[in-house]
Each structure stands twice: as structure tokens, then as C-alpha cells.
Design a protein around this nucleic acid. Structure first.
Lengths: 69, 69
DNA sequence: CATATATTACCGTTATTACGGTAATACGAT
DNA sequence: ATCGTATTACCGTAATAACGGTAATATATG
């Protein structure tokens, strides 16, 4: 697994957004954006998804059993 | 994005686990396993990770900007 | 260096999830 | 069809994440 916090941060920067702006676009609180970038794992899944959606990041799940479901 | 609930369910079945057993292995509540399989997005990210870990499923994030960070 | 802006951090309140218990339904095997 | 097990569903309580406010620190810019 990857450093999601760093991934979000770098994408946000590239998009020229502040945490606050990203939070608004994703319709979540600024504190939550901060938490995600800090890899706090207690955040709501839906909030992570909201951020990823704004930043155009996709999620994929992989396992020995799947070449994608 | 993929049907995570279905993915979890099929992997759990393949592993021969009940929801309750999976919950215990992941050290979370049975209700949460049920919720994940129902694609309830309000679950805690850490709980999803716990389940994926037990089932040996990896997460990957993809975007136009990354060939993996 | 000084100023402005962004980030990090902390706090208190509110809203909501996590959880186990339990009941009802569905599923599978004999 | 019957029995046993798994799943689905609902509930109440306790735990905790979400949130905005604010302050402190860091970063960037003139």
C-alpha cells in the first residue's frame, strides 16, 4: 500500500489548491483533508473517496484472485 | 471504481470464512463487515484496510499524474 | 527581513459510526 | 421438507470522527 497522504498532497499541489479549497470542492471539512494527508486512518471512507474524486485519482483493488472484479 | 463489497464477499467465500469469522480476524465488528459488503461508504477507512489485509487484497491508486507514488 | 498565506495543531461540540444483541429471512445440506 | 447455519436487518448505547474556530508554526513572496 501506498502513501495516500502524500499522494493526495502532491495531487492537490499540482492542481493548485489549498487544503481549504480542496475541502470545499470535496464538500468535507478542512480538518479532514489535513487528516487524510497525514495518513490518519480513522477517516470515513466516503470522505477519502470524495477527495480522490476531486483530484481525479482512481482506486484499484488487487489480489492473487483477481485480475480485476 | 470497483464493487468493493462484492470483492470482499467473494474473497471471503473463497477463504471459507463467515462474516463473523472475518470480523474477528480483522478485529472489527460483524456489523461492519456486513456494511462493507453492502458498500456502505460511511465505514472507517481503517476498518476497510483491516478487512483487506486479512483477505490479502491490495489497494492501488491511479491517476494521470502517477505511475505509482 | 517583513508580510501574507498556507499548513499544522489543538479543542469542544455535534453528528454519526461501531458494535454486540437479537430477530427474521435466506441459504444449503441431508 | 426439515434442520442447521449464514446472512440480513434493526436497535440502543458507547465510542469517536467530523467539523469550524482559532492559534501557532512554516512557507512563500515582495
Amino acid at each position: 500500500m501506498v502513501d495516500l497522504g502524500l499522494l493526495v498532497k502532491s495531487h492537490r499541489k499540482k492542481a493548485g489548491l489549498t487544503q481549504f479549497e480542496l475541502a470545499n470542492l470535496a464538500d468535507i471539512g478542512k480538518t479532514t483533508v489535513f487528516d487524510i494527508e497525514k495518513n490518519k486512518e480513522t477517516v470515513r471512507w466516503s470522505n477519502i473517496l470524495a477527495v480522490l474524486r476531486v483530484l481525479n485519482i482512481e482506486v484499484e483493488f488487487k489480489s492473487p484472485l483477481t485480475e480485476n472484479v
